[in-house]
């Protein structure tokens, strides 16, 4: 379990380049550094559910990103996104 305040990196992975898939991790976050805000519980992996495959329970986190680290001209102060543990790696 990742605790609030932990720095994480979103995996720089592009499953859509390898074939049909269902992804809940937006493109603009791949490879980006973020900070865990809080755990949101556990849910069946939607990437498996979408294909009617056995879907393990995964921890879901609210992770905060600095918008200007993604787009230099970004206008907001914080972007918060729900991300599954399988998309997060130690930074």
């Amino acid at each position: 379990m990742l605790s609030p305040g932990t720095t994480v990196r979103v995996r720089d992975d592009w499953p859509e380049a390898r074939g049909p898939c269902h992804i809940r991790t937006p493109h603009y976050l791949r490879g980006r550094l973020g900070t865990v805000v809080r755990p949101l519980g556990a849910f069946r992996n939607p990437e498996d559910l979408a294909f009617a495959r056995p879907a393990p329970m995964l921890a879901l986190y609210h992770v905060a990103f600095e918008p200007r680290s993604i787009w230099p001209d970004a206008g907001g102060d914080e972007i918060v996104v729900e991300l599954y543990e399988t998309w997060l790696e130690a930074a």
Partner: peptide, 12 residues
């Protein structure tokens, strides 16, 4: 005023 954008992507 800080602006927090919440991108609703998953199970919430």
């Amino acid at each position: 005023r800080r602006i927090r954008v919440v991108d609703s992507t998953a199970d919430y």
